[in-house]
Design a binder for these strands. Structure first.
Length: 756
DNA sequence: AAAAAAT
């Protein structure tokens, strides 16, 4: 412990000192509103002005952009009108767009309202709900009053309350107080005004009626056309990216060294091939051996953020790959850079020992891993009768209280791998203690998206409840009251996303000081820019020395920042033999003309099974969902521009099968489990190999078969080749045009051809 | 670019 913490602390100081600076910037954020309020005296109205002001500021910026965009748009119009029939994007709509542009600030303003509206919606039912019990309660009082009759002053007292209620009680009293009614009515317009918002809301919800507007909107939004236009430009972007690439190109002669790479690739399969027999022979030693390989991989991956630098690094990599020390960087508590190999050896021995333990109990079941009967039964109810490999590996060390890093590919059972032992640990730590009202949570699970947090809770909750422990979800986009209420009652395990957790933490409504087990799901993702610092602050709020568990399908050295500060001699696990050969996912890349893209997508999603389509931006995801719908294929979208209610509902629509096509941003890339998605379409190719792996992992789960189709243009072939190489995935590139058989095949319609 | 708080 002290060994780690001292050097770790030192590193943390080096690594995070600047980030503390960033932290102060966060504090500045807090101060801003205050400062703004000070700058602009007044109470609330200046506050509103404060909101308007940035918009006013933003508006000219938008105008500038739109002015620029107009030039590009005109070009885009020309391109589109040539490329496409004017079916969906009719000219009158385009012509109407300028009007829409004028509307934009308002619309964009509306959007900023929408979360607020949705928030209001959630509150209103509660208000009315809260009010009505009050009424009914009052009514129970009334009989008493009516019994007294002489108590009418009391009634008048009630009347005073009634207007306060919902003004309805005032009706019974109304006859005398019709002016009061008119007063009530004066309130109602406000309500009706709210209602006027609601139709807008419902209008928002029913986005499709809005679709009538949307051509305008989509056109209006400087975003969409720009974005869609960007698509057209993506070659340009990619071209822009190529400065980096072009930098690569300068190195592509170095890539000409790739024959060397390809040579390396031929070695990799050889390695993996060598591994498997060993793995098969003795799982765990093999496992440790595999790890020694993957650290190399992870090292390669760690180069990715360095992609810009890759040429150099990748060039340097090859010698390094053959070197063991880098492996140590991955496995070891990354302290002593000096004694790499010793560290490696030490770590490997430890891993090996534990791995063997896990392997010996693998066949035995969860009980033998140390889980209690209730938990084992709960797992069986969840369909987990016997442990998957990742579960067999991690349960015992987690119960021992060790910090654990674990990598198991998508759909390999990671949630139970940390969830079941976590519940067991908390249960043991609470043995003999009362579950006190208002007790502080003992465990924390962090996830990158709300949907994932929700899904994790769906798995953990039954396990926890089987032993009398309580969980609650803490994530944004929904009112706090219910979450805070649960915390006040007292829960044992909280599952959520960083933003709301930190929010409640800062509000003093969440006490993490008794959290002894903290889990980071999709841990590498949680270490990316924008996530890392909140996560660090949250982890720092947990009990000193709390156990840390980091899980991900693509766990790599990206988590080093957290490992350095928070983990002590972590055990590292991964599942042997997880490569493409053992995968149930088929990968295809269609090289298409951009002008065919929309129709090719229509053709692909026009099928029987559940299809998940990934788009790079929210706007494009939304546009595609509308496009499919217009083409007669029921589709919904999932992205961060939707309110949480709609996000949840749309995902549920796919899960329940009410729609078969979901178009999502990368919000759905990680962790989301829908049983039988058999086709994943990447309308936009991902930029990172990790994203590819996670997106494609939405299919082929639990041994089912699945297909991943990625659409690219010719310009992107090289980039795609490199990405697939990093992902260690082999996929054929197929030049595809409208009407090609491959589209029928991929959509499954070839079956009809066979029968016909 | 997206995601993660709310206003």
């Amino acid at each position: 412990m002290p060994k780690n913490k001292k050097p770790a602390g030192g590193r943390a100081a080096k690594n995070f000192e600047p980030r503390y600076g960033a932290k102060t910037s966060f504090q500045d954020r807090k101060r801003r509103p205050e400062g703004a309020a000070a700058d602009k005296p007044g109470s609330k109205s200046p506050g509103h002005r404060g909101y308007r002001a940035p918009e006013a500021d933003a508006a000219p910026a938008k105008r500038r952009w739109s002015a620029q965009d107009r030039v590009g748009r005109d070009e885009a119009h020309g391109i589109r009108s040539q490329a496409r029939g004017d079916d969906r994007y009719s000219r009158p709509e385009r012509d109407a767009a300028p009007r829409g542009r004028d509307d934009r600030p308002a619309r964009s303003f509306d959007r900023s309202d929408r979360p607020a509206r949705s928030f209001d919606r959630d509150e209103r039912p509660r208000r009315s709900f809260d009010d009505r019990p009050a009424r009914s309660f009052d009514r129970t009082e009334r009989p008493a009053r009516s019994f007294d009759r002489s108590d009418r002053p009391a009634r008048s007292f009630d009347r005073d309350q009634r207007p306060a209620r919902d003004d309805r009680p005032a009706r019974s009293f109304d006859r005398n107080d019709r002016p009061a009614r008119s007063f009530d009515r004066s309130d109602r317009p406000a309500r009706s005004f709210d209602r006027s918002d609601r139709p807008a809301r419902s209008f928002d919800r029913d986005q499709r009626p809005a679709r009538d507007d949307r051509p305008a909107r989509s056109f209006d939004r400087s975003d969409r056309p720009a974005r869609s236009f960007d698509r057209d430009e993506r070659p340009r972007r990619s071209f822009d990216d190529r400065p980096a690439r072009s930098f690569d190109r300068n190195d592509r002669p170095a890539r000409d060294d790739r024959p060397a790479r390809s040579f390396d690739r031929t070695e990799r399969p050889a390695r993996s091939f060598d591994d498997r027999p060993r793995r098969d022979g003795a799982d765990r030693p093999a496992g440790s051996f595999d790890r020694s390989d993957r650290p190399a991989r992870s090292f390669d991956r760690s180069d990715r953020p360095a992609r810009d630098e890759r040429p150099a690094r990748s060039f340097d990599d090859r010698p390094r790959r053959t070197e063991a020390p880098n492996r140590s960087d991955w496995n070891a508590t990354p302290k002593r850079s000096a004694e790499h190999e010793q560290r490696v050896d030490v770590v490997h021995e430890r891993l090996q020992a534990q791995a063997v333990d896990a392997a010996t109990v693998t066949g035995a079941g969860f009980s033998e891993l140390g889980l209690g009967d209730n938990i084992v039964r709960a797992l069986a109810d969840l369909g987990a009768a016997s442990p998957f490999p990742i579960q067999a590996a991690t349960v015992a060390p987690i119960l021992e209280g060790r910090d654990v890093l674990a990598r198991g590919r998508t759909g390999s059972g990671k949630t139970i791998a940390f969830g079941a032992p976590l519940v067991e640990s908390i249960l043991r730590s609470q043995a003999g203690k009362r579950r006190e009202f208002g007790r502080a949570p003992k465990a924390l699970i962090l996830a990158p998206t709300r949907e994932l947090a929700l899904q994790i809770d769906r798995t953990i909750q039954p396990i926890a409840r089987s032993v009398g422990l309580f969980t609650t979800q803490i994530y944004g986009g929904v009112p706090q009251a219910r979450q805070v209420g649960a915390l006040k009652k007292g829960v044992d395990i909280i599952i959520g996303t960083p933003g709301r957790i930190e929010d409640l933490l800062n509000q003093g409504k969440l006490n993490l000081s008794e959290v002894t087990v903290a889990v980071l799901d999709e841990a590498d993702h949680m270490c990316e820019l924008g996530f890392l610092e909140p996560v660090q602050r949250i982890l720092r709020a947990t009990a000193k020395g709390s156990q840390k568990l980091l899980f991900s399908a693509t766990l790599d050295r990206e988590v080093a920042a957290l490992v350095d500060e928070f983990l002590v001699e972590p055990a590292v696990y991964e599942v042997a033999g997880e490569d493409q050969e053992s995968s149930t996912i088929e990968h295809r890349v269609l090289v298409i003309e951009h002008r065919d893209k929309a129709q090719i997508l229509d053709s692909l999603v026009d099928r029987e099974g559940k299809t998940l389509v990934f788009a790079r931006t929210r706007a494009y995801a939304e546009m595609l969902a509308e496009q499919f719908d217009d083409a007669g294929i029921a589709a919904v979208a999932l992205h961060g521009d939707l309110n949480q209610q709609k996000r949840t509902r749309n995902l549920e629509k796919l899960t329940s099968g009410r729609v078969n096509v979901l178009v999502a941003t990368d919000v759905a890339a990680r962790g989301i489990h829908v049983d039988d998605i058999d086709l994943v379409i990447q309308a936009d190719a991902p930029d990172e190999y990790k994203t590819y792996l996670h997106r494609s992992g939405r299919t082929g789960r639990a041994g089912r078969s699945g297909t991943v189709v990625t659409l690219i243009t010719r310009q992107r072939r090289r980039r795609m080749t490199e990405l697939l190489d990093r992902a260690e995935i082999e996929a054929p590139f197929e030049e595809t045009q409208l009407g090609d058989d491959v589209l029928e095949e991929l959509s499954g319609r070839q079956l009809a051809d066979v029968t016909s």
